[in-house]
């Protein structure tokens, strides 16, 4: 198959392609979410230690996964945009940040609401929670930097640098926090889950994670379309759209 992949790297082509892909991802996300919620509440058995409170896991873990994946993907596209000067990849990177920050916030929030009944405290300075909090700061830094720069190309490149510096730092931060946490054993709470997790729980978690993926892709595509329109509002193909020339 001879597909010219570079064709899809043009914002104009991607705009229409994304428009056709969004309904697909939306439908799949809704279906997966329905199945995932059904499993989470009606199939997964009551946990022997945590009773029903553990059901928070079905949003907590997918949100935490997404927060990390999305940061990596964002840095990847931002880096591609910086290295090859491709505008579209930088736009995708900027479109990923708000969704990533939203999932990071959700991971922290659900972590707190799970921690309160289980550990008796809304917040513990556990290695994972603390790293997640710093991840949120990194997302906020990326978005504020891009928002402060008026020139879109400079914003893209500056964002790419800070995203890449963040990627180098995340493992260092994680291991530092873990070291710090083991040093202060008094305050730490073991997060270790029961050794064998029921299959239904695992399935539910995976399906919810897939739903979150599809949801993220749909959101990112719509946001990318907005960014394309904002930046290309003076180009010929957008003017064609204005005159009502249908093109698909």
């Amino acid at each position: 198959m001879a597909i010219n992949w570079f064709k899809y790297a043009s914002p104009a082509t991607f705009y229409f392609l994304a428009g056709r892909m969004i309904p697909f991802f939306t439908v799949v996300a809704v279906l997966l979410l329905l199945v995932g919620l059904y499993i989470s509440f009606f199939v997964a058995p009551t946990d022997f230690q945590q009773s029903e409170a553990y059901r928070i896991i079905f949003i907590h873990v997918p949100a935490a996964w997404m927060s990390m994946f999305l940061y990596l993907i964002m840095a990847f596209w931002a880096g591609i945009g910086l290295a090859f000067n491709t505008r579209l990849s930088s736009m995708v990177a900027s479109a990923i940040a708000p969704t990533g920050a939203m999932f990071t916030f959700l991971a922290l929030w659900t972590g707190a609401w799970w921690g309160k009944p289980m550990w008796g405290a809304w917040w513990v300075w556990d290695a994972r929670l603390t790293s997640e909090l710093i991840l949120l700061f990194l997302y906020i830094g990326f978005m504020s930097l891009q928002a402060a720069i008026d020139d879109p190309r400079r914003a893209d490149k500056a964002g790419a640098i800070i995203a890449l510096v963040g990627v180098v730092n995340i493992p260092i931060i994680y291991f530092s926090v873990q070291w710090w946490n083991t040093l202060h054993q008094g305050a730490s709470v073991s997060l270790v889950q029961s050794p064998k997790m029921a299959t239904a729980m695992l399935t539910g978690m995976l399906i919810m994670a897939l739903a979150a993926w599809m949801y993220s892709i749909a959101m990112i595509l719509i946001r990318t379309r907005s960014i394309i329109l904002e930046r290309e509002s003076r180009t010929a193909w957008v003017s064609e759209l204005k005159e009502g020339v249908t093109r698909s």
């Binding site: 830094g141 930097l145 510096v165 931060i173 530092s176």
Partner: peptide, 20 residues
């Protein structure tokens, strides 16, 4: 203010091991 948002999270490892 922006520089503090960008830089302070990256200082975390130094803080941990310096004070540690």
């Amino acid at each position: 203010v922006l520089v503090s948002l960008l830089v302070l999270p990256l200082y975390v490892p130094v803080l941990i091991f310096g004070a540690g």
